[in-house]
Write a protein that binds this DNA or RNA. Structure first.
Lengths: 235, 235
DNA sequence: TTTTCTAACTTGTATATACAAGTTGTTTTG
DNA sequence: CAAAACAACTTGTATATACAAGTTAGAAAA
């Protein structure tokens, strides 16, 4: 049964319209009142959807004027919940699964604090390499608590969104998260994986994502080649 | 005359309470209904203030339970509007003005697109070095359009917030912004300024901040030593 | 004493309405 | 023809209210 809130439905509709070019940069979205009429919902609900588009950097609201569509960020938005860069502006993203999901224990030096439930459950571990236009751009390692995830090690993740699989098959939604970013020197392995130039540093990101399941967070560490693409954020 | 919206006033009150330790990590804020009663405002207004606290990573809301105070991020939050790290969790931030504001033309290779008004006005240029606990952590270069800023070159900026000065003396408010982050190799000058180890990279951030003045944006480029501190963001 | 149930709380989502403040296009006036 | 005024739009802020869904503490029952 469908219980997605109305404001999120509208957000998705408008986001898709923007990303697919139904509205171009500089266009005005339909006014709040027009959206009320079109979708049969009220203005506070419409405004909530629009606020989320602002948050994602897709529109800029101007009092008295309207909601202006912005150029979809050409760089990879990694601050938004969407997570997968395909959500915003990047032309083509391919994913290789370097290590398919396996069950293992948490490593001793795991950088995040784990809940007791998480500690006891062990983790599902996977590694991916992500490409933009056939160039490897980021290498990410995911640790998920080994909870609520029956038979996940037997699933195929090639070119699929981890979040989509979690949502569709396990009813796990990402609610929010936090991250820390640093510039670091790459290891030899990373240099090879990401096709880095000699001496070129990488962006290192530690992310902890909260979900709708109590005590179940997703932990990502990401190494990002920021030579041609930057990490983009708006606020 | 005071025309700050009520939701922002409440946000500031609660933010200060959190930052000053009136509420500690793990504490619950007063409930939405309690805040309504205490401050004589309605629940949607309270919720708007709380949403902004969530956005800044200061609280986590849990349906049925309450608003839980989070550990103030120990790292420098640079994604929020507050800008100055003193807004959130950093113990001590000192600023040296390496280049006091001067009027100059925009450089040819300026990385941002400028509005016509901005191009015609020339810019106010300044350089700062920011310290956390006496360690230089970031070096930032600001370009402001030479508009609306009489006698700004004669002002003192030592250990003062640029945004405070803009707000107080020029009625310029930051409304939002966007930024791009990359990992880069530092120049010799940067290595010296930021006390970097040999081979250590820096985080490079390009920020464009929108203000309440039409056609007036603030452009910052920041070089950040992420050895001991990370850039923090929540979403 | 333990388990179950219930009431009272919490935040989440939504409707309805009103006025403030900004923008823009049209009309009126000089 | 240009400038000023005005109307009609826009988003911003706020109140009021209701029900959904989650959590927790206490009471009742086993």
């Amino acid at each position: 049964m469908d219980n997605i809130p109305q404001y999120r439905k509208l957000y998705e509709i408008l986001r898709k319209h923007i990303v697919r070019g139904v509205y171009s940069e500089g266009d005005l979205l339909p006014s709040e009142n027009e959206l009320c009429a079109t979708y049969g919902i009220t203005r506070p609900t419409v405004r909530q959807a629009l606020e989320t588009l602002v948050k994602d950097g897709l529109i800029l609201k101007k009092q008295g004027k309207g909601s202006i569509v912005r150029k979809p960020p050409q760089n990879i938005g990694i601050l938004s919940i969407a997570g997968t860069a395909s959500a915003v502006g990047v032309r083509y993203l391919k994913t290789d699964i370097l290590q398919k999901p396996i069950v293992k224990t948490w490593s001793e030096d795991f950088p995040f604090e784990l809940s007791e439930l998480e500690q006891e459950s062990g983790c599902v571990y996977m590694e991916r390499l992500r490409y933009v236009e056939d160039e490897p751009v980021f290498y990410d390692v995911n640790h998920l608590p080994n909870l609520f995830l029956p038979r996940i090690t037997q699933r195929s993740f090639e070119n699929k969104s981890l979040f989509e699989i979690l949502r569709k098959h396990y009813q796990i939604e990402i609610l929010g998260g936090e991250q820390q970013l640093k510039a670091v020197k790459p290891t030899v392995k990373l240099r090879q994986l990401l096709h880095l130039k000699p001496g070129q540093p990488v962006l290192y990101i530690e992310r902890k994502l909260q979900t709708n399941k109590e005590g179940f967070n997703i932990y990502s560490t990401i190494y990002f080649n920021s030579d041609k693409h930057a990490i983009f954020g708006s606020f």
